[in-house]
Amino acid sequence: GPMAAMCVSSQRLCQMVHSAGLRHGTVDRLHTLLATGWWMAAIDSSYDSQLDQMIVRSTNRFTVVKKLANDIAVLPQPAHPGSSLPATLIGLHGQNLFEALVALRLLADATKNVHLEVALAARRLAMQETVDLHIHVYERIVY
C-alpha cells in the first residue's frame, strides 16, 4: 500500500544522501524527519500522498545533482581527493564556502586538477544546499 511505498522511498532517499557523504548530521536529520512523517501519515492519511510525492521529487532532484558531482569526481588525475583544493577553501562549509568560492581568484597557471577540485567543491555545496532545502520544506510540513 501507500505506506509501504513511502517507507521504501524514504529509505532510498536516506541511503542516497548517506552515500553522498554530506555534512555530519544531515542524514540523521533527514531520517528523523521522514520517520516522523511516516508516523504522521499512518495517523492522518491526508499526509501520505503529499509526503510520498515530495520524497520521490527529492530523490529525482538529488539523483541529478549527485550524478553531476560524481561525473566531476572521477576526472582529477592522479586520484588524490581534495589534494588540489586551494587552501582558502579547505575546511569551509555552507555560506563561508560559498563566499570563498565566489571570491576565489586562481593563478593563470593553475593546474587542471585545481579547477576540477574547485568545480567539485561547488557541486558538492550545491548538493548539500539541495538536501538542506528539502529538509527545510519537510520540516515545515511535518512539524
Binding site: 560559498f98 587542471k112 576540477l116 550545491a126 544546499e129
Partner: peptide, 28 residues
C-alpha cells in the same frame, strides 16, 4: 519564500562556477 529564493540564487551561482572551472580545466 525567501529561503527558496536564496537557495535558487546560490544554486545558479554555483552552477556558473562549476561551468567556469570545468571550462578552465579543459583549457590547461
Amino acid at each position: 519564500n525567501a529561503t527558496t529564493l536564496a537557495f535558487f540564487r546560490r544554486l545558479e551561482a554555483l552552477d556558473a562556477l562549476v561551468e567556469k572551472h570545468l571550462d578552465l580545466a579543459t583549457q590547461v
